[in-house]
Amino acid sequence: MLEAIEAGAEYFIGIFQEGAGWFGAVVVGIIPLLIILLTGVNALIAFIGQERINKFAELAGRPGWQYSFIRYLALPVVAVVALTNPMAYTMGTFVPEKNKPAFYDAAVSFVHPPLGILPHVNPGELFVWLGIATGISAAGLSLTPLAVRYLLVGLVVIYLRGLVTQFIVDRMIARREAANTEPATA
């Protein structure tokens, strides 16, 4: 009888010990670097200042496909790195009305890929990256190659998202305008 209770207690506390071990590994292994890195980047952004970023953002509003690289690649990256989630989306102000959904899609998709190198962009959602990264560390592998590739693939993906979403938005706007020019049936 007593043995059963002991076994039960051991099982119960074992659950928390398992979690505590994981907690300790993450706090010791990740938090110190994160704190120093965050401080450095926060200070850098304070030195650069908001006005300089706004000036750059105005470029993204220009028409023409060659500016799509600025709209869906350069501006989302600068916005996310400098203003972080969620303030980055305020940069949509500088983008023409019909491009706003695609800009948002590109920007919001970039709040996780840089986390391995620039964790300041979204410290509240660090574990989208860290969850898998902790496992890779536990397997005894270096995180840097994965972090770099995550960032680079992220760049390709956000540009693609910008283009695809823009394509869909253009179709929907065209359809709505066609519907509006037809005589109202109601």
């Binding site: 959602e125 660090l126 990256w129 969850g131 898998i132 902790t134 890779i136 536990a138 397997a139």
Partner: peptide, 19 residues
């Protein structure tokens, strides 16, 4: 809160850790 992505990511992470 990206909670689902973070939880699935962490669970997958343990699988990467175990090889």
């Amino acid at each position: 809160g990206a909670v689902i992505a973070q939880v699935i990511g962490t669970l997958l992470g343990t699988q990467f850790g175990d090889g």
